[in-house]
């Protein structure tokens, strides 16, 4: 079975390390915060100018001046800092953020990512996504493996305008965890119950399938 949104978030959370500064994009990436392993300390960076994002506020502590990059009301945890937007992107562009997790429309075998613009549809803007993919070394893209119409999103060449060129090395989809090496996707793990054949069929870009592709493990809920 394809992974649920929660399982995708859970799988990515396993890439966290104690002491990491992490930027989580809007959508499924935001859910990753719910699965940070116990006993591990992670600081979440929000590009509007907050390092050390805490949980949503209570009705009593809600504050219009305290939001995250998704414009949701949030809190700051102990140890947090708040700063201006240039400082925030100095952290991002300067490579100080340890892990960036974001969504995408398409990824290709050269590590290109398209996530902000569909020609012919209204373009709302890239926000901070271009800075994030250009600035980070360690990026995980989370997306569904194929569109609703079954079109693969893992391509030999992105068809949509790019967010960044040659900057993606790791992709988690609802079917598989893959890495990008030497112009190909390498299948590293598959979702429980999903066959290698299904992943091959739904991957348009060159895919290398090792002899053994382990299934992801999830604790029974």
């Amino acid at each position: 079975m394809a992974l649920s949104r929660e399982q995708m978030a859970q799988r990515v959370a396993r890439e966290m390390q104690d002491g990491y500064y992490v930027n989580l994009g809007i959508g499924i990436p935001t859910l990753v915060a719910n699965y940070i392993p116990e006993g591990m300390e992670v600081m979440l960076q929000s590009e509007n100018g907050l390092l050390g994002m805490g949980p949503f506020p209570t009705e009593e502590t809600i504050d219009a001046d305290m939001i995250n990059a998704g414009k949701q009301t949030v809190t700051a945890r102990i140890g947090a800092s708040i700063f201006n937007s240039a400082e925030s992107f100095a952290m991002i562009r300067g490579g100080h953020v340890d892990l960036t997790v974001l969504g995408a429309f398409e990824v290709d075998v050269e590590g290109n990512i398209a996530s902000w613009m569909i020609p012919g549809k209204l373009v709302k803007g890239m926000g901070g996504a271009m800075d994030l993919v250009a600035g980070a070394d360690n990026i995980i893209v989370i997306m569904t493996h194929a569109s609703k119409d079954g079109e693969s999103k893992l391509l030999s060449k992105c068809s949509l305008p790019l967010t960044g060129a040659g900057c993606i090395k790791r992709v988690l989809t609802d079917l598989a965890y893959l890495e990008i090496e030497n112009g190909a996707f390498v299948l590293k793990e598959r979702a429980p119950g999903v066959s290698v054949e299904e992943i091959v069929a739904k991957t348009a870009g060159k895919l290398i399938v090792p002899d053994h592709v382990p299934e992801m493990q999830f604790a029974a809920e």
Binding site: S85, F89, V123, G125, G127, D131
Partner: peptide, 12 residues
């Protein structure tokens, strides 16, 4: 449309 970090740096 201008990337957010670039926009901040343009002002700075």
């Amino acid at each position: 449309l201008t990337p957010q970090g670039t926009l901040a740096e343009k002002m700075r």
